[in-house]
Amino acid sequence: MKPRPDSPSLIRVWEILFAGLLMILIWQAVVWATQVESFILPGPLAVFRAFVSQFALIWHHTLITAIEVLIGLALGVTAGILTALHLTISERGRKLVMPALVMSQTIPVFALAPLLTLWLGYGLASKIAMAILIVYFPVTSTFLDGLTNTPRDYLDLARTMRSPNRSTLMQIQVPAAVPSLTSGIRLAAVYAPIGAVIGEWVGASNGLGYLMLLANGRVKIDLMFAALIALCLLTVTIRAVVGMLCNRAEKWSGLTDRN
């Protein structure tokens, strides 16, 4: 109930801005010091100019990638949650499915991208599928971990209250696993754009990944960097919004800030 000072978050914003500024300065310094050609490494100023002059183009492709990422994230997280719930109920399922899931992680997602493009075409579907694939595992494994590690005392209490398994799962195990789930979703928010962009690299006519390849092919390295920065901004924005929602869920669960 104590009023929390909001200065720490303000300090963080300054820290991030400062780190960004420092990186830009180092980048400019390298460009000046090495006198490298602008088609190898354009300076920050050239990239900024490309960003402004090509803003409409970048915006169009950013929106496409954003749609792929958001749909992929939503579906991947939902599928992960449902899988984890199912595996919690069914011990046999856990024994059968978990090894397969872990094995599947040894296949690089990059290797699957051409297949997905072949099966699902050049449109949104193959990119969304990539995002789902890359998001699914961290969400499933972190949530399952939380669901199967409910404090034993809570389960004892439910047992003496003659709670049906389903009620114990939904009213005790799931809320108690919220912090595990949110840590998985935070990872997912950063991974999902990677999945979508890989999909775009393999075959697309839209999206930031496509724009990057296009600019690279035409030696418009400044545009390529501008697209890369747009991708960073997109990821940071999605991560920030998802982080905010996760904080809210954790606060509700009462499982953070406990002394």
Binding site: R162, S163, I172, S253, L255
Partner: peptide, 23 residues
């Protein structure tokens, strides 16, 4: 038990009525 085993996401009222809610 020694630890109160109150569920931190429920209010006092919801904790008191937990048994009926579970059943």
């Amino acid at each position: 038990a020694q630890s109160d085993l109150l569920l931190p996401w429920l209010t006092v009222r919801q904790n008191v009525s937990l048994g009926a809610s579970l059943r």
